[in-house]
Structure formats: C-alpha cells, structure tokens
Design a protein around this nucleic acid. Structure first.
Lengths: 196, 196
DNA sequence: GCAAATTAATGATTTATTCAAG
DNA sequence: CTTGAATAAATCATTAATTTGC
C-alpha cells in the first residue's frame, strides 16, 4: 500500500463488545463464535464425508444439532464450511504449486502469507488438481440428515462410521429454483443464513 | 463464441422455468428479478447519494418501498448494491488503467470483454483513484428512510430532489455488533438478507 | 416488419482475499 | 498464528437489446 502508514482501509468496526456480559452459556463473551471440540469434530466429519456447501435446511439442522454442545448460530455453520473449504483448497493449492514451480524462486522460504495476487499464477498448474479434487467431491454423496444423530452419539467414541457418512446426493443451491412458485425460499448463496 | 460450440461450462442446472406460469404481477415469469425503471431509478439515486452497503434494516425498508413498483425481495436489493458497487469500481479501474498504459498495446481496440485476470494491472495506477472515490463516499451521508416516500412521489415527475437525497449518516453494518446481547440480529454481511 | 440468432447487461453464485479476535 | 467473520473479485447464467436473414 502507500507508504503513508494509513491502515490500508481501516474497515471501520466499532465493536463495543464488552457490553454483552450476561450472555448465556459458559464463557459467552458475545464475541465471535468459539466452537467446542465436539462441534468441530462433527463439522469436520461432515466435511470429510463430502459436504461442501450445505443448503439452508441442512445448515439449520446442523446448527440445531450442534447447539447441544454450546451456543451456535446458523451463520457459524455457514462460515465454517466456507472457510474450511477455502482453506483446504488453499492448502492443497500451495502444495501442488510448489510441486510445479521449476526453478523460479523456490529458494525463497514460504513466507507467512504471500498476497497471492502479487504473483499471477500460471493458472494451469494447480487448477488441474483443484478441478480433480472438486470432481471427486461431486461424486460424493451426502448424509440423510438423520445421521447427525448417530454422529453425535459416536462423536466422543469412535470414528469408524465412515460408511454411513455418505449417502444422499447433495441438494445444493442448484435445487434452489425449484421452489420458484413461492417467494423462493432460501436465497441460494451467501445469504442462506436466514437466522431462523 | 468459441468455435467448438460448447457452452463454455454448462454448470448443471435443470431450471425448468416454464412451470411458473401463474406467477403474480405483470409478466412475472419467476426467473430472475427484473427491476422496473422506477426501481432502478431509486436504487441509483441512493447509490449516487453515497449508499454502498446498506444494513439489513435499510435493505428491508428499501425493498419494502420498492415493492410498490413491482415484485422484489430483499436479496435483490442486496445484490443490486453489490453488483453496482463492484461494477462502478471496475469501470473506473478500467478507465484509469487505459490512462496509465504507455505504449503497450493501446492500439488494440477495446474488445468485447478482456478477461481482466489475463492482464495483471500495475496495481498502483488505479488503486489511487479508487481509494479517492471510496474516501469521498465515506464522507457522504445517507437518507432518513422517510425520504424514500418523497422520492417515490417524484420519481415519475422530476429529478430535482438532489438536495434531499443526502442527509443522515449511514448506519451501515458497523453498528451490527451492538445488537449483541440477543442472538445478534442481522448477520452483518452477505447474509444480511433475511427474507422478511 | 418480425422472429431466430447474437451480443451486451446485469442478476445471482462462488471463490479469493482481508481483517481481526482469541 | 489459527481461524471466525466480512468484503471484494471473479464467474456463471439469464434476460433485454441488437442485429440479421427473410
């Protein structure tokens, strides 16, 4: 950015968090969502089972289930999947990028977070692997929404329910337009929050 | 188009639009939102008045007002602002880019839609102007939400209410976290749809 | 003049990037 | 330094303009 020392953008945000003292659960500070290990475990299981962008209904069900372990909102589930998906991809990309770089500047140690858009990638090297990955995922199937119960039961016990975790087809945003006659339920995208 | 004839990507999608025959209003085909000229006019006015990312409340109010002219949902308003903002920025960016290019290939006529990511811009030329623009906008103020009435009255008559269109401060998403005690109303971001 | 074929706009979705709390 | 939250950029898909052959 410009060397003036300006905070790039200083995206506002007053916050004023401290006010939320009398929250609800354990250490509910009203700040950002702090998932419990069980919650993360379950989400990770779902992700490993192939879930990438759950529908609104699924999000709500998941959120409802996970609220058993602590405070949670739908948007947390949504964000979690967004971030996890993106960061898995990112991770994978970085790996295969290193694999593909010939002798450009591979000597440079992997700095903290190279701003990515600084170095226009060849766009052929890693995209292949990503596409491959996505294709694989599209092949996967999704859980029947009742399975969550089972997962919850097993979450502290074992992790050998893998054969259960892939069943139905993912009815993602693409089924959105079928609810067309009405006011169109769940806005198919980022908006699929709809804080119940 | 590409000489292969393939539809570039064809990302699935069954659609089945024709089923929505008995919609509601005038030519309600159930497809995507098709704004009326009045709606666009009002949205543009708000944008010109400095509104960039209205809060959930504002979106709902706007949507409610605009529903007078035809079918509309909150998410349409949200999307409109997203797209309009982005495309204004894009436009501006392209212009200043041309301004700064020395003698690279300025002879080439402005083709249909250069894929943008093909040509990594200097990132110093246009960012200045964009920043300038954004700063200017941040200075602006917003309408008191009752003014919309007046605009609606004048929309088909005249366009000389410009002095009315900038009044209150914009209480954008940054006031989001003040509603923290409860379940946090309106998710501050893309999700700020909440299809009432 | 007018419908099929193309092109241009733009609504909607997904992905990448950035910010900042813990 | 990990990751939840938020925004911006890129992309996809559909509809309105527009052109074109008749």
């Amino acid at each position: 950015m410009s060397p003036g020392g300006l905070p790039t953008k200083a995206r506002g945000l007053g916050r004023s968090i401290n006010g939320g003292g009398g929250g609800g659960g354990t250490g509910t500070k009203c700040g950002r969502w702090n998932p419990t290990v069980e919650q993360v475990k379950l989400l990770t299981d779902l992700f490993k089972a192939g879930m990438r962008t759950p529908s609104t209904d699924q999000i709500q069900k998941i959120s409802s289930e996970l609220s058993f372990y602590g405070k949670i909102e739908s948007k947390n589930v949504f964000y979690w999947f967004q971030n996890h998906k993106a960061r898995e991809r990112q991770k994978r990309r970085k790996i295969s990028c290193i694999d593909h770089r010939r002798d450009t500047d591979l000597s440079s140690p992997p700095r903290y977070r190279p701003p990515l858009h600084e170095q226009p990638p060849p766009k052929d090297s890693f995209e292949v692997c990503v596409e491959e990955e996505e294709k694989a995922i599209e092949t996967l199937q999704l859980f029947p929404l009742a399975k969550v119960e089972r997962v919850r039961a097993n979450v502290t016990a074992a992790t050998t329910h893998n054969e259960y975790t892939r069943e139905q087809a993912y009815t993602t945003a693409f089924s959105t337009y079928s609810t067309c006659g009405a006011e169109m339920e769940h806005p198919p995208l980022d908006l699929r929050l709809s804080f119940l």
